[in-house]
């Protein structure tokens, strides 16, 4: 009982900073998600149908992004851009870093989706007189899109969790609020619980929404 009273008292005291931290976390995610989705949309056709040089360059980018830590990518942007005379905010550096890595992962998901559509669908479309582009747009991409809904959803949940890395370059997001509060108030468990619950609600809700969308779509087309 004492613990509960104590817990609520601490949460009440932290409420304003939790709200502002949550707002920053959401903002990072909402800025990075469209950038990552669009970036992947740009990478995929270059990777799949670009000439051999473009293919190699995009391939190298994707592999480098997938096989190095996101933290270092964010550091590279945050500490590197000033050398080029660019001074984006910490927030922007975090968003760009997160979007750049997740674009690489998403590009692989897009490619996998397109390649998973059977050659027979291409045959059927071309037999009707569709050009390559018409077939891609009307037959292949819509099916690939449906098929990769699930993997994209999983990737976006990972992205939301990765937003916590912006705390490493001084953005006061939810994770940073937790860290600072623990040090300032010298209580650990109560604050950790608050932070953890908020993240859990965020990723859990996102996951639930994505699953509902996926089920709706897939049950139609079997």
């Amino acid at each position: 009982m004492d613990f509960l009273v104590n817990l609520l008292a601490i949460w009440a005291r932290l409420y304003p900073s939790l709200v502002s931290g949550f707002a920053v976390t959401i903002s990072v995610a909402l800025a990075a998600i469209p950038l990552a989705l669009l970036g992947a949309l740009l990478l995929t056709p270059l990777r799949m149908w670009g000439g051999s040089i473009i293919h190699a360059v995009t391939g190298a980018y994707i592999e480098f992004m997938r096989n190095t830590p996101l933290l270092l990518q964010i550091y590279l942007i945050y500490f590197g851009l000033p050398l080029l005379g660019l001074y984006p905010s910490e927030f922007m550096c975090g968003v760009i870093g997160i979007a750049m890595q997740h674009a690489a992962f998403l590009a692989e998901i897009y490619r996998g989706g397109i390649e998973s559509i059977s050659q027979r669908q291409w045959d059927a479309a071309r037999a009707m007189g569709m050009t390559w582009a018409t077939a891609l747009r009307n037959v292949i991409l819509p099916q690939a899109g449906l098929r990769i809904l699930g993997p994209i959803g999983n990737q976006l949940i990972i992205l939301v969790k990765d937003t916590s890395l912006v705390s490493a370059i001084g953005v006061v997001d939810l994770t940073m609020v937790g860290k600072v509060s623990i040090e300032r108030l010298a209580v650990t468990l109560e604050i950790f619980l608050a932070i953890a619950l908020i993240y859990l609600a965020l990723t859990g809700a996102l996951g639930a929404v994505l699953r509902i969308i996926e089920r709706r779509v897939l049950e139609r087309i079997g």
Binding site: K161, S167, T175, G178, L200, G207
Partner: peptide, 11 residues
């Protein structure tokens, strides 16, 4: 799985 590893590490 629903919480960032950074938060778990802080704990």
């Amino acid at each position: 799985r629903g919480i960032p590893i950074l938060v778990i590490m802080l704990l």
